[in-house]
Computed example of a mutant assay.
Amino acid sequence: MHEGTSTTDARGGVTVREVIVVGGGVSGLTTAVVLAERGHRVRVWSREPASATTSAVAGALWWPYRIEPAESVGGWALTTLRGYEELARRPEETGVRLVHGLHRGQRLTALGPWAGRLEQVSQVAEGLRARLPLIDMPAHLRWLERRLGEAGGGVERREVGGFDEALAEASTVVNCTGLGARALVPDGGVRPVRGQLVVVENPGIDEWFTEADPASDATTYFFPQPGGLILGGTAEEDDWSTVPDPRTTERIVARCARVRPEIAGARIIGHRVGLRPARSGGVRIEGEALPGGVRLVHNYGHGGAGVTVALGCAEAVARLLG
């Protein structure tokens, strides 16, 4: 059988496809796991190891942040939330924990209808108190790769110059290339939103905190992770620099220390910069039927919330495949 064909499983009439997922971040790996566990033969092509992707840089608190379209995001996010709540039963294995914290200045009534379905969130004078998934991304990405392997899939290090390369080997290709979609699709609406983080030795903080000003490219947050306390952050549109800026580091530490003064004396142990893959018009989940019976399915443009909608978007892709 040629690799570019689909077959029908005689046991249940299920169409089994050869699928290549291009992109090895959280969206690509989650999509690959969902498809592999539904019986498809899945390979992930990734230019870099998961530990070097933008996903590995993320904070990463579950919360719909800098992502559109609003009418779809809530459903994707809630699906993903339920998945993380299940994974949080095995935090050492999955990298997912449920942690208490505060969204300062946030009002429940200002959010979309999805917020009314949150069970562990309450309105207080300062903002929203919540118990939400906080994901140790390096650990979670490793877990996704293991789970993909257990489902019969695998990850291959491969740089792709065009989707035709993958379509020559599989009947279905899923585009989870994030910022790479700007050149590969090509889609000029894809642009970076730069985020810079600082990692410090945790001085004993066990809750997360966020405060975002929609009118500014500076945000204030800290997340207690196993590798240290992650401080943030920035949201600098159309900035391609991946080099940490020392002045930005100083401002991030100062903002966080105004909330928790003990942060001011914490030793800095690392810097992170990631380019969020934003897109004009928001997330694109769409299938293209191409000549020869092959199919290209897009799943990109997740902005600052790829972690938050990963499972919901993966299941949307699976529904497109049938």
Rank of each mutant, 00 (worst) to 15 (best):
H2W: 14
T8P: 04
A10H: 14
G12W: 14
V16E: 10
E18F: 04
V21K: 00
G24I: 01
G24K: 01
V26R: 01
V34C: 09
G39M: 04
G39R: 06
H40Y: 06
R43L: 14
V44N: 05
E48K: 12
E48R: 15
S51K: 09
L61P: 06
W62M: 03
Y65A: 03
R66W: 12
I67L: 07
E71R: 12
E86T: 15
E86R: 13
A88Q: 08
R90T: 14
R90A: 15
E92F: 05
E93M: 04
V99E: 11
L102W: 06
H103M: 12
R107G: 05
L108R: 13
A115K: 01
A115S: 14
G116C: 06
R117K: 13
V121R: 04
E126A: 15
E126V: 12
R129L: 14
A130S: 13
A130K: 00
P138N: 03
A139W: 06
H140A: 06
R142I: 10
L148H: 07
G153F: 02
V160R: 01
G162D: 13
L167I: 11
T172I: 08
V174G: 09
V174P: 12
V174A: 03
N175Q: 04
C176Y: 02
G180E: 04
L184K: 05
P186A: 00
D187L: 02
R194A: 04
G195Y: 00
Q196W: 03
Q196I: 08
G204K: 00
G204H: 02
E207K: 02
E207I: 03
W208D: 02
F209I: 05
E211V: 03
A212F: 14
A215Y: 08
A215W: 11
S216L: 10
T219L: 15
T220E: 04
Y221C: 08
F222W: 02
P224D: 08
T234N: 09
T234E: 09
A235E: 13
W240S: 07
S241R: 09
S241N: 10
T242P: 12
P244V: 00
R247E: 15
T248M: 11
E250H: 11
R251A: 15
R255Q: 11
R258S: 07
P261E: 00
E262W: 04
E262F: 02
E262A: 11
I263L: 02
G274L: 02
L275H: 05
R276A: 08
S280A: 15
G281T: 08
G287S: 11
P291Y: 05
G292Y: 04
G293C: 03
H298V: 07
G301N: 03
H302F: 01
G304H: 00
G312Q: 02
A314T: 10
E315G: 09
A316L: 09
G322V: 07
